[in-house]
Design a protein around this nucleic acid. Structure first.
Lengths: 211, 211, 211, 211
DNA sequence: AATGAATGAGGGTTCATTCAT
DNA sequence: TATGAATGAACCCTCATTCAT
């Protein structure tokens, strides 16, 4: 029995490993192809082929094309958020924190261009998914804006939409050709455009203004 | 001959009028259906049906689905621009001009919700088209930013992307439910977030700041 | 205008005629293939090919495979019923009427072997459809049995099921090879097995019994 | 050697027992799923899963899906026949025997509703199998009818088909909802409809007629 | 110019079956 | 003997587009 068990265990391990590897390759292939051709343009068969597996194998790992897409998007979002939070944790004040977040964001984008294209690029076919992604981001954004906006004439809902769009588009634009602007230029420009930085600038004019 | 000519002319006129009318209806139907279902979701046959013509007629007026889409998008853009310029012409200074432009933009959006959805809504399947649209808008934007940004730490390319994204998204968000914010709130928030207004504010702090 | 109308009319007529013809051929091909391979075994493409049209054309005429199947089955049922009723109308008494119905049924079956195979053959994949077909037949059957059964120990529901099964199977069996029994033999055997004929026989023993 | 032999035997015994158990569970799962979803609707993987084994295991026990289906059907048929014969053995005359057979049949059907659905229910996808099943039943039936029908105007082939269909359909109908008719009602109705009972009734009018 | 029936390539998806472990 | 990941053929169906009328 222990023999059998061992055999079974080993076998399961190999199978499971193979399965995970296949899944990983499907996700990688999906990320690239979705980025290149969009949700509609990419076909499940092509993704499978690029992953080096048969067409049917796709459906052993994902219920349908949408599911792979979701998976890719949310995994990316989660990683991004984690990295941003880690970068933010070390910041002494809010302006520094924001700058750190943006730097991290740019670094992440640079390392995951395909992902950025899928997430924020034109050809935003995320369809229903788009809702979910934004619903996951916007409320927090709005909240922070509401807290921080003070007496300013800023409508938090409007500002949240504006901010989210601004950042996501700049990102998508930048990864298309990072030579267009240095990381610092992008970060500093985004900072200047951030609704709350105006307030921060007032509080610490020397730091933000004197360049 | 002149008789015949007259007849032909008249006949051509009627045919041409009928043709133009068919085209107009196809564009109207396309606008609505693209807005409702997106570029991929809307089918050429459905557009034809909604326009009250046969499926094949579609292709007498447009090379393919993309062409109708282009047509709709650029016609809308042109009208929008004309109205904005008209509104801007009467402004005494740049802040007032910008405010007038935004107000006109919001009015236009309110009157053409479907168009806004097609142009800027999620499900931005404009695909290759998106490039063209933005290429048509962004250079001017960038130019103006370059002129106006003065010594500020703003990268014009980045800021142009940010601005375009900000405005287009806020528009798309607002037309989904105009009750979310008053027209004034939207305009004023967008103004506050505009890269150049910060500079303007500095120049004329009383006007923009004291509310 | 009358010219145009005429043209249009003629054109519509030709198109409509062509359409009807295509539909007719799809139905014919479907009847044969469903009979030969069953609902699952027959493929929409094969039906289209056999009808001499492209695969997609199938779906211009029928929502899906099931719909063609339904169409075939109910059209056949309707025709059968009409012919039976016509045959029955001339009968002076119930036994004669029933005999006439059975004779007409056999004649119909002989002329439409494929249809009989589809309707009653083994490989009864009519699935949900089967319900509808039987629901269309059984209630009337049961009603007549209830009226006619008199004091006999017959449960009308059971007898209705039995009768429907008996007739439909015999039909399917017979058309497989009509040489197995003469039309008269089939009719007379079915008559002898009919629940109500026993009663009738009792009433008029001479007519039904003395052979 | 005898030691070794013993060991091998014991080991084989355990393996064989396990194998038989797996097979038993596949058959049980197959019976249920074929009844619920039909031959096409049930998938080999689903049957394996319900049996608690891996997909591949299915094919260690059965050449293919059809084979399991055959197995189920013929095993059921054999059991049914055995029970019927046992019940019939105690009968003093043919009418009593037939009544006993029918009662046993109903009892069996009630206890094995899934089986009845597989065997005789609509969605008769037994396909080629159907032939075999009926070929196994009908000849005997026909023979008995030939013997018993005496001078009556009954074609034995026709009557055999009719009888088989009648009984199998009534069974399938009844197990769907046994509340539709009592066991006695079903049996008595079937008896009245049996080709030979007419003759029997003539012979023993008191028993069969006077109720 | 308009019609609308027809085309046919191509997509997503399923599932019976195989085979390395 | 059992596992279960993988295969890949096959199917249903959609729709942009063509073309005879």
């Amino acid at each position: 029995m222990s023999f059998n068990e061992l055999y079974v265990r080993k076998s399961e391990g190999a199978a499971a490993r193979s399965r995970r590897e296949t899944r990983r390759r499907l996700i990688a292939a999906g990320t690239e192809l979705f980025a290149r051709r969009g949700l509609y343009g990419a076909t499940s068969s092509e993704i499978a082929r690029q992953a080096g597996v048969a067409a049917g194998t796709f459906y052993l790992h994902f219920k349908d094309k949408q599911e792979l897409f979701r998976e890719i998007v949310f995994a990316a979002l989660a990683e991004l958020r984690a990295r941003e939070d880690a970068a933010a944790a070390r910041a002494p004040d809010r302006l520094t924190e924001l700058r750190a977040r943006y730097h991290e964001l740019l670094r992440f984008a640079d390392e995951n261009r395909n992902l950025v294209r899928v997430l924020f690029g034109r050809r935003h076919e995320a369809a229903d998914l788009g809702e979910d992604v934004l619903d996951a981001i916007l409320p927090g954004l709005e909240e922070r804006l509401r807290e921080g906006s003070g007496s300013a004439r800023l409508h938090p809902g409007v500002a949240a939409q504006a901010l989210a769009a601004m950042v996501s588009r700049v990102l998508a634009w930048w990864v298309e050709d990072p030579g267009r602007a240095s990381r610092d230029e992008v970060v500093e420009t985004l900072l200047r455009l951030h609704p709350l930085v105006r307030t921060l600038e007032r509080a610490h004019p020397t730091e933000a203004e004197e360049t």
